[in-house]
Write a protein that binds this DNA or RNA. Structure first.
Lengths: 207, 207
DNA sequence: GAGAAAGTTTGCAGATTCGGCAAGCTTTGC
DNA sequence: GCAAAGCTTGCCGAATCTGCAAACTTTCTC
């Protein structure tokens, strides 16, 4: 969002954060979760281990940070959708935008590849699954707030916004999963429309 | 399930596991997550810290273990539902059974109260949210398998069973949440029917 | 039943992680 | 240009986690 808002200090912090996160992903993909020490990640990003701890509470948090940001981007995208748009259309567009959105990788060229491997890692490594889900849950909270706003409901009181947010979160997980494993890899958009279509139809039993 | 199947050894292990888990919940509710050491939990359950580590990989895992078992019970309950039953009816019943099911607490009388406080804790404490979600995800996997079995679909291939499992998981989270905060506390069954009804209807926007 | 086999519990030690604190730098704001 | 505010870092102690080997218990076999 605020790409270069608010000066040098803030920008540097973002850079450090992202550098740490990518370093964590790269090293873990390459060597495996428990053969990477925080010391290694910090070194790769050019900061001290103590600084690592200032940014992230654990190795897992650092690895999942990219996913976390992307998930929140979807919530942000939803807020940007035009007011009149029907809710499911808005959600679909927001999701597509969020997925397509900024996929910055350490090296420009193999960006997608790095991200793909990172995602696979987060989903496969048991030590990371909790962190991965937690990131999703955090994003869901923002998503619920955005939905409540848009539909004039109350997050604290009404079940609707939280339910939709939770369901969409679950759906996006499935979409990601399916997209990761399907071979050949289908366009994300197709998977997403299929899944959302089923939701809107009340999840009819297939045949 | 296998209450007293398979001898003394197995039973003792279950007892230790449950004792550790309840001890972890009780102490954490009373003193707060980071003012409880594994040493304390182990002492409360009458085993060594090393033994604690044989059962659980972390404090969080121990605290969430009860939730984990209950969530898996819902998947197990689904497998027990009669074959002809429509899928959503089966899921609803399984969920109700799973929720009602075995709520053993350290002290018989305040069982529900302990469980309620434990749940609140898991949902409120950031350090536990990841673990909580992870337990849910693990249960969801079993749930998906049960659904695939029942509907003759393929977990690895088809999106349907994973999607339904994910959505139901999300829905149960919302139900639990709503049930925890609503005042006066409504019957769980009512909340559950409301939420599942919305799902089956395709999540229509509330006016 | 007795004795062997298999599975558990425990203490110990080493590697890591985590977070408070205070000193040294850098960026911001006036 | 300077003071205030915010970051980074090293150091340190408290906790966690895991492999290993010894001491026990339960289960299995004859």
């Amino acid at each position: 969002m605020d790409t270069d808002r608010a000066g040098l200090r803030e920008r540097k912090k973002q850079e450090t954060r992202i550098a740490l996160s990518w370093a964590a992903i790269r090293l873990t993909v390459e060597h495996g979760f428990d053969r990477v020490r925080i010391e290694d990640i910090a070194a790769e990003a050019g900061v001290s281990t103590r600084t690592f701890s200032n940014y992230f509470g654990s190795k897992g948090e650092a690895i999942v940070a990219r996913h976390h940001d992307r998930a929140r981007a979807i919530a942000a995208a939803l807020r940007e959708r035009p007011d009149g748009e029907p809710i499911w259309a808005a959600i679909t567009h927001a999701a597509l935008e969020g997925f397509a959105l900024g996929r910055p990788a350490p090296n420009g060229q193999a960006a997608d590849q790095s991200w793909l491997e990172g995602l696979r890692l987060m989903v496969a490594e048991p030590a990371l699954q909790g962190e991965f889900q937690k990131a999703g849950a955090a994003a869901e909270a923002e998503f619920a707030a955005a939905i409540a706003e848009r539909t004039g409901t109350d997050v604290a009181q009404d079940v609707y916004p939280r339910l939709v947010a939770g369901v969409v979160g679950a759906a996006l997980n499935v979409v990601t999963q399916q997209w990761l494993i399907a071979e050949p890899r289908p366009p994300l958009e197709d998977v997403l429309r299929d899944v959302f279509g089923r939701l809107a139809a009340g999840l009819p039993e297939p045949r």
